[in-house]
């Protein structure tokens, strides 16, 4: 767009009009520059207040949630207890053992069961329970025999000599 005013009469009037100077601004330049400096410093000053506000809001929300949390109720539930009891079952009575032959002889003959064979058959049938109770160690152990050292005993030698 051309900045030229083509009408010469109008161009002259434009020049005359432009010779008028606008009244100076009734503003204190120094005050304006000072306020502009403060405004420019405030330009980036919103970050910390925003961060503070966000953190404070978060803390308030968590505090409210903590206050309104459901109360902790302690419920005692019975725990199943395992009680061990010893139940005594009566041992089955032994049936009278029929007479059986030992071995693979086709014609078993009348064999008399000795005590050992009967005991073996009982163990094979009833297990270890069929074994008779052993006497206690103290009862089973024979008393210690203290042997005297063989020193020369003239009386014994005499007696042996007498016998021989």
């Amino acid at each position: 767009m051309s900045e030229q005013t083509h009408d010469p009469e109008l161009a002259g009037f434009e020049r005359t009009l432009k010779s008028l100077s606008p009244a100076p601004a009734a503003m204190d330049r120094d005050v304006l520059m000072f306020q502009a400096g403060r405004a420019s410093a405030r330009r980036n000053g919103w970050r910390w207040p925003v961060a503070t506000a966000v953190l404070a809001s978060t803390a308030i929300v968590f505090a409210l949630l903590w206050q309104q949390r459901p109360a902790v109720v302690i419920v005692d539930r019975p725990v199943p207890q395992i009680v061990e009891r010893i139940v005594y079952k009566p041992a089955p009575e032994r049936e009278p053992e029929p007479f059986t032959a030992v071995g693979n002889s086709p014609e078993p003959g009348p064999v008399v069961q000795t005590g050992y064979v009967r005991l073996r058959n009982d163990v094979l049938r009833w297990g270890m329970d069929a074994l008779p109770h052993l006497p206690t160690a103290a009862a089973a152990t024979p008393p210690l025999e203290i042997k005297r050292p063989r020193f020369f005993d003239p009386e014994a030698t005499k007696a042996r000599g007498d016998r021989s």
């Binding site: 767009m1 051309s2 900045e3 030229q4 005013t5 083509h6 009408d7 010469p8 009469e9 109008l10 161009a11 002259g12 009037f13 434009e14 020049r15 005359t16 009009l17």
Partner: peptide
């Protein structure tokens, strides 16, 4: 162009109101 037209119309109106005599030399801005 509209801005220029309004400008010219305003100047013409002002000149008439103020009764300024017309200088002979054109101005180039």
């Amino acid at each position: 162009s509209t801005a220029h037209r309004w400008y010219t119309a305003g100047l013409t109106s002002l000149r008439e109101r103020l009764g300024v005599p017309c200088p002979s030399k054109p101005t180039i801005r």
